[in-house]
Computed example of a mutant assay.
Amino acid sequence: MSPGIIDPTTALYCIDRLGEVFGRLAGREIPSPMRFDEKRQLRIVTEINTLGDLACHAFAAIARYGITDVDVIARLLSTMDNLSRSSPCEACEAIMGLREAIRRESEKQVSLAFDREVVQALPESRG
Rank of each mutant, 00 (worst) to 15 (best):
S2C: 02
S2H: 11
G4Y: 13
I5S: 13
I6T: 10
P8R: 05
T10Q: 15
A11G: 01
C14N: 14
C14M: 12
L18D: 12
L18S: 06
L18P: 01
R24N: 10
R24M: 05
A26Y: 09
G27H: 10
G27T: 05
G27A: 03
G27Q: 08
R28E: 15
R28Q: 15
E29A: 09
E29Y: 08
E29R: 09
I30Q: 11
P31C: 01
S32R: 08
S32E: 13
P33N: 14
P33M: 05
M34H: 07
M34S: 08
R35S: 12
F36C: 03
F36W: 12
F36N: 05
E38R: 07
K39A: 13
Q41R: 13
L42K: 06
L42I: 06
R43T: 13
V45Y: 00
T46G: 07
T46N: 13
T46E: 14
E47C: 01
N49T: 09
N49A: 11
T50M: 09
L51T: 04
G52N: 07
D53E: 15
D53Y: 14
L54D: 14
A55S: 10
A55P: 05
C56A: 06
C56V: 12
H57C: 04
F59N: 00
A60L: 04
A61N: 14
A61M: 10
A61D: 15
A61V: 02
I62W: 11
I62A: 02
R64T: 05
R64H: 13
Y65E: 13
Y65V: 00
G66H: 04
T68I: 01
D69L: 02
R75I: 01
L76S: 02
S78I: 01
S78Y: 08
M80Y: 10
D81Q: 10
D81R: 08
D81I: 02
N82V: 09
N82K: 09
N82T: 12
L83Y: 08
L83F: 05
S84A: 14
S84F: 02
S87A: 15
S87I: 02
P88H: 11
P88V: 06
C89M: 11
C89K: 11
E90N: 08
A91T: 02
A91F: 05
A91S: 15
C92D: 13
C92Y: 07
A94G: 00
I95S: 02
M96K: 08
R99I: 05
E100I: 00
E100N: 03
E100V: 01
I102H: 09
I102E: 08
R103M: 01
R104K: 14
E105N: 03
S106F: 10
Q109N: 09
V110Q: 07
V110S: 03
S111F: 04
S111M: 08
S111Q: 13
A113T: 12
D115C: 05
R116A: 06
R116Y: 05
R116D: 00
E117W: 10
E117D: 14
V119I: 15
P123G: 08
E124Y: 01
S125N: 12
